[in-house]
Design a protein around this nucleic acid. Sequence first.
DNA 1: ATGGTTGCCTTGCAA
Length: 259
Amino acid sequence: MSSWTIATWNVNSIRTRLEHVLSWLQEHSPEVLCLQETKATEEQFPLQPFQDRGWHVAQSGQKSYNGVALISREPLDEVRAGFPGDPDPSKARVLSGTWRGTRLITVYVPNGSEVDSPSYDYKLSWLAAMQSWLEQEGDPAQPLAILGDFNIAPDDRDVYDPERFRGRILCTDAEREALKRLTGWGLHDLFRRYQKAGGHYSWWDYRAGRFRRNLGLRIDLILASEALTARATDCRIDPAPRRLERPSDHTPVLATFSG
DNA sequence: ATGGTTGCCTTGCAA
């Protein structure tokens, strides 16, 4: 196939966002769409509407919170939920699968709540554990991507008001250093290969008209290994679903590749 | 202005 697309979207409940996701799939026809915050047990996930339209679904879910899924045209190989060393394997935050030799890992990184809270400490230890897993079992020389809601704005260009967010959750030095360790392992933040300017966001708080005023953060990322990055042709954010009625607070990020 | 909105099926918690 000459051109193919992978994408990531934190949908904030797959049951509430079902129609948005189905129409987005029809419009963009990605090879794989990674979802986060499905907020459904595996029994609650609306499988049939996807299957009726020819999509395959791999999922890892739990009641009320978290939940990740991989929607694909072809069934994925070696699908695996979670990772060894996860500090809390009961939380459905990671799902991986292989599409035509490319390893795809979707992640819903813990939010962290507030700096110096137990949730924040958990976020940092979770990121360290994920890094250890990748270093032990992954290979950045192979085609591989990590896609998802990282709950980290990589730098000040990714924040609508860097001074307001300085030292606050999603923007602390410790979070950004954890992300740099991850990319330092051999991954590229694909969006930044194609767009150097700030002001491009993937998440806007529901409150205070933040989307209308484009007061957002770029926290949904596609990190690709060198082997995969070499085949990339574009990476962009699609703001359209954020304008729909009852939207997710996040919008999809897509990457396209050749070959 | 430490506000505000959404989704879970809680009557608060997480984001």
